[in-house]
Design a protein around this nucleic acid. Structure first.
Length: 256
DNA sequence: ATGGTCGCGGAGCGA
């Protein structure tokens, strides 16, 4: 089984990249973030026509998450079940075969010290509680998505420039490590311990085209049984190149 | 170089 995570930055704007990518790569499960549309506007028919079932938590203009799967999607839940956080469509969980999947679009946080930065840290604490309550670590668990946090400087093309800033601040990294303390492990890092592997490049400074100036903020966090079955985690850089790409590349985890 | 480019929605905000 292969499970991909991809922040598509609008599923409708990205459909001409998403559909051929699904057809060529044939991942079993795809966790999408920033779909940016209500459920009625989601291109469900087009995606079903290339062989995927769809589970959705949509929202107008901002946020929005979805799970696409070739196999039946069971036990779908939306949000944390906490009113304070569930007004933004950032969380969808489901079980596919023997894998419990949790797809997250973590709050960006704007900048360190901003109101949204504090909200981001609270949101990550709520995510940790949700994982502890709902995801038994003796099962195959895959918590993936856009976490909007780097683990450490190995995930940053220019650590000096980013030191202490949003996506790289110590409190954010502590919160990301806190998720792992529930029994999860950074899947990609196990296969790329040297770092320097990125998943997001800023449109503005043409970070992808100009010298691979990226950050790794999209992750697969895997339970022990999931990690034991995992044979690789790779970034699909081809999907970030070419015409009308998302600013994020997909990340694909393969399981035996 | 505190800039720059996207997407949404139809101006300015979020990323």
């Amino acid at each position: 089984m292969r499970i991909a995570t991809w922040n598509v930055n609008s599923v409708r704007a990205r459909l001409e990249r998403l559909l051929p990518w699904l057809t060529e790569r044939q991942p079993d499960v795809v966790c999408l973030q920033e779909t940016k549309c209500v459920d009625e506007m989601f291109p469900r028919d087009e995606i079903e026509d290339v062989g995927y079932q769809v589970a959705l938590s949509g929202q107008k203009t901002y946020n929005g998450v979805a799970i696409l799967s070739k196999k039946p999607i069971e036990d779908v839940t939306l949000g944390f079940g906490i009113e304070r956080f569930d007004g933004e469509a950032r969380v969808i969980a489901a079980t596919i075969e023997d894998v419990m999947v949790l797809n997250c679009y973590v709050v960006n946080g704007q900048e360190v010290g901003h109101e949204r930065y504090d909200y981001k840290l609270e949101w990550l604490a709520a995510l940790r509680d949700f994982i502890v309550e709902r995801f038994p670590m003796d099962e195959k668990v895959c918590v993936c998505g856009d976490f909007n946090v780097t683990f450490d400087d190995k995930d940053v093309y220019n650590p000096d420039r980013w030191r202490g800033r949003i996506l790289c601040s110590a409190p954010e990294r502590k919160a990301l490590m806190g998720l792992c303390e529930t029994g999860l492990e950074d899947g990609l890092r196990k296969f790329h311990p040297q770092g320097g592997v990125y998943t997001w490049w800023d449109y503005r400074r043409r970070g992808f085209e100009n010298g691979d100036r990226g950050l790794r903020i999209d992750h697969h966090l895997l339970s022990g049984p999931a990690m034991a079955a995992c044979t690789g985690v790779e970034v699909d850089r081809e999907a970030r190149a070419g015409k009308k790409p998302s600013d994020h590349a997909p990340v694909i985890a393969t399981f035996a």
